[in-house]
């Protein structure tokens, strides 16, 4: 019955690409879902991909059991400051970060499992008025934070037990950085999107701010999700929560833009808009490889193939509760979709 109700609506001619409900997990002790993610967890010599769910006051780790069921392994209890988001650390095991705060991030904590002691721990990584945070490869964390006078863009290295001593600062742009993305295939390159709709590029090794490039006035408050360099161009996948609807592009949720970093000129490569007849604007979403997913204001979840610029699947709002979260697992073959009541559904894509 549940599987039937959650079967995604496939769009015309795209039946080979669909979402198949694999399993559901529900934390009976929590009523709200703040965020969901995946992490690698290794214990007793066995390593597997686990699901991490966050509600305002706690974060839980779930491991797969037989028959597509999930069992809760551990719950980290947090203090009085609410959890805002999970910050996954790519290519790590037994480590995940979380951001806590009220309207904006006030602190970042590391949640970890020590296989030596068979113990779950947490430690404080950073405090401040933090505007954006991203987990980077090699157990690093980049964040932007503001004081009254200036912005600080900092990289923190993490050990298996918490914050390492050796940190690094990146040259800040004048405007506030609201999101980061590693440049795939370029170990030392990082991009960010700013409050005045610019893309900034850093050299992570030297901390230099290499370039600032404007995205365009039609797409305010763009957020970068993914970046890669190819043939001398920097391709950036952006979401547009406040884009204006146009006849030619509809209501674009995601755009792929090619920048020439030498000249700061850009061209739009692909728009990913909702198919005609579907209402709703982008609320929040995630990008992995060429797959993008977004929760819409209508309560639906939409999936796009960014190479085709085409919506490939749509999860309609559930009668028992609209969708609130959509995240790819560490591979784009698995989608985690969270409902407002805290239920998380896993789909094979």
């Amino acid at each position: 019955d549940v599987a039937g109700r959650l079967t995604p609506v496939l769009l015309d001619g795209l039946r080979e690409e669909s979402l198949q409900l694999v399993s559901k997990l529900k934390d009976s002790s929590s009523s709200c879902a703040v965020d969901v993610s995946t992490m690698w967890w290794e214990a007793a010599g066995s390593r597997g991909l686990c699901v991490v769910t966050a509600c305002e006051s706690s974060v839980s780790l779930w491991k797969p059991l037989a028959s597509d069921r999930w069992g809760k392994v551990y719950t980290w209890q947090l203090g009085e400051i609410p959890v805002i988001q999970i910050v996954p650390l790519p290519d790590t095991c037994n480590l995940v970060c979380i951001a806590l705060g009220d309207l904006e991030i006030g602190e970042i904590r590391l949640l970890l499992y020590s296989s030596e002691n068979d113990a779950f721990k947490q430690s404080l990584v950073k405090t401040g008025n933090i505007k954006a945070v991203l987990g980077l490869k090699d157990r690093r964390l980049v964040s932007s934070s503001r004081t009254m006078q200036e912005q600080q863009v900092e990289i923190v290295s993490l050990s298996e037990t918490g914050r390492s001593k050796d940190g690094q600062t990146l040259m800040p742009p004048e405007e506030t950085v609201l999101a980061f993305a590693e440049v795939e295939g370029m170990r030392d390159a990082l991009v960010g999107t700013t409050a005045v709709n610019s893309i900034v590029v850093w050299n992570l090794k030297t901390g230099q701010l290499l370039k600032k490039m404007h995205v365009g006035y039609s797409y305010p408050a763009s957020i970068c999700h993914r970046a890669y360099s190819d043939s001398g161009l920097l391709f950036v996948v952006l979401s547009h929560p406040h884009a204006k609807e146009s006849e030619s592009c509809g209501n674009p949720a995601f755009r792929v833009i090619a920048f020439n970093p030498k000249t700061a000129r850009s061209v739009g490569v692909m728009f990913s808009s909702l198919p005609p007849g579907h209402a709703g604007r982008y609320l929040e979403g995630d990008v992995k490889d060429a797959s993008a997913v977004a929760v819409l204001t209508s309560g639906a979840v939409a999936v796009w193939d960014l190479l085709l610029g085409r919506c490939t699947a749509l999860l309609p709002p559930d009668p028992e509760g609209s969708w609130a979260l959509a995240r790819w697992a560490t591979t784009s073959a698995c989608l985690l979709a969270g409902q407002q009541d805290g239920t998380v559904c896993l789909y094979r894509y």
Partner: peptide
């Protein structure tokens, strides 16, 4: 994309910008 839209393209843009940017 063509060079007329984007200007001259360099495969080594990252190294070139790193050499030019203030440190």
């Amino acid at each position: 994309c063509s060079e007329s839209d984007l200007g001259p393209i360099s495969l080594n843009w990252f190294e070139e910008l790193s050499a030019e940017a203030p440190s």
